[in-house]
Design a protein around this nucleic acid. Structure first.
Length: 595
RNA sequence: GGGGGUGUAGCUCAGUUGGUUAGAGCGAUCGCCUGUCACGCGAUAGGUCGCGGGUUCGAGUCCCGUCACUCCCGCCA
């Protein structure tokens, strides 16, 4: 007989009836009837009920063993009586009649119970992560994550991609997120940076002629956390291909994501051919470049309405005159909603730091259209009609207005879309709604400095005939830059890269970098591009967020085995920590103490 | 850096208008119980009410400060 087990805790059934077996696992639960004791034994694969009564010489000893002890039971598989079958368990038709036992690992009193549906504070969960990870839900999530990654690897290989590792110790990049820095002992005063993404390396791999690359790549960014954003590190499915255009990449990724989401979730994919939405359209209709397409609400621009003489809403008219815009969301068939529905939304908008959301509802009495609600009286029947035309609204619908600077209006209405849809409960939770956001502008104006800067990746290829690009109007230049969004979550971004050095100098010049500084900052890339670079491009879907969607989790820590907390600390391993002076000296580092 | 929420037993939480000895469930310990699967019943132990200061005859409760965790904004090419 094997040393620890003949079977796992998830595999025994009626076919094994009468067999002598050896099981090892954790004591998940005990049900002690005094002279009869049930023990649920748990391992990675499942739970098996073991039973012992007072006729057995070990009864008293086993009765006193605490939960979560690691134990081995020797016994016989016994068929359960009909009325004692547990349909919840795969092993529920049998149980193990214990004949002998051996304790393999003892336990102290537990700081958190394992078998419980209770929620626990993150603090205690992260401090005792190895206990937390024994709990059913997160244990399943982590197993799911492993299977998803393994499946993605196989599919990528089937598509003809090769996986390569890229350096973890690399150089600091001047743009983008804050870098994590690693001091160099052999090069005093100099630092490595952990890669924010293998961006330059994957392009270098293409220039090296490998054609199709992928990697489940760790990425490091020293930025503040969010529920869906780990501080520190996360994983991307990094992809790069040569001799392709945008559509080729779309095909590979759509194909892959369709397969992954079908295999690992029962939710429906709304459009297997992901719809393409231009950045501009997305910002207008949804106020964001990561729209949740499950949400049917759309935004429309009504600025012109407030230039009419038969509209008397003076606050907005004044703002519009001085350059503000007005945009609105129509909610369908909301005329019978109580006043509190509207007031709640207005109050919410004020809590968001805006001046609120003005609203009214379209009504029709004796064939006369009017606006009912706080600001309805300021709009003539003609004006109402025009708004309905512009916004596809009907009698009985309501309109919520926001007025202000374009960026502020977009931001407020983007959240208002979510808020109103949530209040109306019109989001279908049973679907995945993917889309591509395409045609990103190459440049944008920095609000503070007024200077032109790259809006995304500076290595992206501008769209159109390169010889005819209008460098005098840089804001009109669009890039082959694209994002995938699913249910309002940004899953990935990618681009066709600029592989032409002369063009790159020109594009950098517009953003204020002269040739020398480009050569200094991106010498590796620029050099490489000047020795025969193939046209290439890629994308990098976020692994963590894919798994979050598949596991139906809102927090990235629920699908991460050993995450950092919001302050980028590991409460279990005590990282980051102090280091001794010897280490610092060797690295030529002085700590400046605050205050 | 800014805003919101939370902090009471090992864990999850309740605690009224500031008023007697701070409670419950789970867990732990002990006792009873032979068909449970959230087993049941009884008892016992377990508290720096995050920390510091203040107001008050009296503070878990009110005020000020501070710390921790969390959510959001900024940030994340």
């Amino acid at each position: 007989m094997k040393k620890y087990r003949t079977h796992t805790c998830g595999e025994l059934n009626l076919k094994n009836n009468d067999e002598k077996v050896l099981l090892s696992g954790w004591i998940n639960k005990k049900r002690d009837h005094g002279n009869l004791l049930f023990i649920d034994l748990r391992d990675n694969y499942g739970i098996t009920q073991c039973v012992i009564d007072n006729k057995n010489e070990f009864f008293k000893k086993i009765e006193n063993i605490p939960l979560e002890t690691v134990i081995q039971f020797e016994g016989k598989v016994v068929k359960r009586e009909k009325d004692t079958i547990n349909k919840e368990l795969n092993t529920g038709e049998i149980e193990i009649k214990i004949s002998n036992f051996k304790i393999l690992g003892t336990t102290k009193e537990l700081p958190l119970p394992i078998f419980s549906d209770q929620e626990y504070s993150e603090e205690i969960r992260l401090k005792y992560r190895y206990l937390d990870l024994r709990r059913s839900k997160i244990h399943k999530n982590i197993n799911l994550r492993s299977k998803v990654i393994s499946y993605i690897r196989k599919e990528m290989e089937n598509f003809g991609f090769l996986e390569f590792q890229t350096p973890i110790l690399t150089s600091s990049s001047p743009e983008g997120a804050r870098d994590f820095l690693v001091p160099s002992r052999l090069n005093p005063g100099k630092f490595y940076a952990l890669p924010q993404a293998p961006q330059q390396f994957k392009q270098l791999i293409m220039i090296s002629g490998f054609d199709k690359y992928f990697q489940i790549a760790p990425c490091f960014r020293d930025e503040d956390a969010r529920a869906d954003r780990s501080p520190g590190e996360f994983y991307q499915l990094d992809i790069e291909m040569s001799f392709i255009n945008q559509e080729d990449i779309f095909n590979v990724v759509e194909n892959l994501l369709n397969k992954v989401f079908k295999k690992f979730s029962t939710k429906k994919i709304l459009n297997e051919k992901f719809p393409k939405i231009s950045f501009e359209d997305s910002m207008l209709k949804y106020g964001t470049d990561k729209p949740d397409l499950r949400n049917p609400l759309e935004i429309c621009d009504l600025t012109e309405i407030f230039k009419r003489d038969d509209v008397k809403f003076e606050i907005f008219k004044k703002l519009v005159k001085s350059g503000s815009i007005v945009r609105a969301i129509i909610s369908k068939k909301t005329k019978d909603r109580p006043r509190s529905f509207f007031d709640n939304i207005d109050k919410w908008a004020k809590d968001e730091g805006s001046s609120g959301l003005a609203y009214f509802t379209f009504e029709k009495d004796n064939n006369k259209i009017s606006g009912k609600g706080p600001i309805g009286k300021f709009f003539s029947p003609d004006a109402c009609q025009e708004i309905m035309k512009l916004s596809n609204a009907e009698i009985g619908d309501s309109v919520f207005f926001a007025c202000g600077k374009k960026k502020d209006v977009e931001k407020l209405l983007s959240s208002a879309r979510d808020k109103i849809a949530k209040d109306l409960d019109i989001i279908d939770e049973s679907i995945f709604a993917f889309c591509w956001i395409v045609d990103y502008p190459m440049y944008e104006i920095d609000e503070k400095s007024g200077k032109i800067q790259f809006s995304h990746n500076p290595f992206s290829m501008p769209q159109g005939d390169i010889s005819k690009l209008n460098f005098n109007q840089p804001l009109s230049i669009k890039a082959y830059q694209y994002d995938i969004v699913c249910n309002g979550i940004e899953l990935s971004s990618g681009a066709i890269r600029n592989h032409i050095p002369e063009l790159m100098y020109k594009l950098f010049a517009i953003a204020g970098y002269d040739k020398e500084s480009v050569e200094e900052k991106f010498s590796g890339m620029i050099n490489a591009l000047s020795y025969g670079a193939p046209p290439h491009g890629g994308i990098a879907p976020g692994i963590d967020r894919i798994v979050m969607l598949l596991a139906n989790e809102k927090n990235i820590r629920e699908i991460t085995m050993f995450p950092l907390n919001q302050n980028a600390q590991d409460l279990m391993m005590n990282a980051p920590s102090n280091v001794d002076n010897g280490q610092l000296k060797e690295l030529n580092i002085n700590i400046i103490k605050k205050k």
